[in-house]
Amino acid sequence: MAIGDKSISAPLTAIKSLFKKPVTVRYPDEVLEVFPEKGVSPRFRGVHTNDLAKCVGCGSCERICPVNAIYMELPEGKEDVKKEYRPVIDYGRCCFCAFCVDVCPTVSLKMSREYDFTTSATMEMRDGEEVKFVIDEFMFRPTNEREDNIGYVTGKKMKVLG
C-alpha cells in the first residue's frame, strides 16, 4: 500500500472529533465501558487483603518480596510463636507485583481492587523545628476489611507452594 502526501486540507478531517464525546471523565467518576463494576478490572493488583484467621505466619511472602516491603510482625496481645506473626506491608516500597499472593500457601493473602491510595501528610515548620511527615499511614497490616472487593487471586491450580 502506498501512503503519500495528499491535499493540504486532508488534516481538516480531524474536525469531526469535535462532535464526539470526550474520552476522559472527571476524577471520582469512572469510565464503565470496559469494566462495568467501578471501572476496575476483576484481576486488578491493588492494596492487599489478608484473612488473619487463615494466615499461618509462614513468612513466604516476606521472603519472595523483591523490594523488602513485607515485615512479619507480632500483633499486640499474642503469644510470641512463629505461627502468630502476620505480615505488615510498607506501601512506600510495594511495587504491586503480587508475587506474595502467588506464593501464599493458604490463599489468605489476596489483592483488592482498591487503587485510590492517597493520604495527607502533616507538615509543621515552626522556628527551628524539623519538618515532619506522617508516613505511618503507608505502612499497615492488611486485614479482611477489603474482602468485598477482591482483585488478584491465585487459584489453587496455579499454586506453587502447597
Binding site: 470496559v34 476496575v40 478490572s41 476483576p42 484481576r43 503480587a98 482483585g151 491465585t154
Partner: peptide, 29 residues
Amino acid sequence: LIMDMFEWLTGGRVYHIYNIPGGVRSDAP
C-alpha cells in the same frame, strides 16, 4: 484501550510482570 486489556489479563497496566520462567502466570480470563 490496550492498557485496559493488559489490566484484565495481568492485573497491571504499565508493568505487567506476566511472564515467568516456565510459562505465564495465569490463563486469560
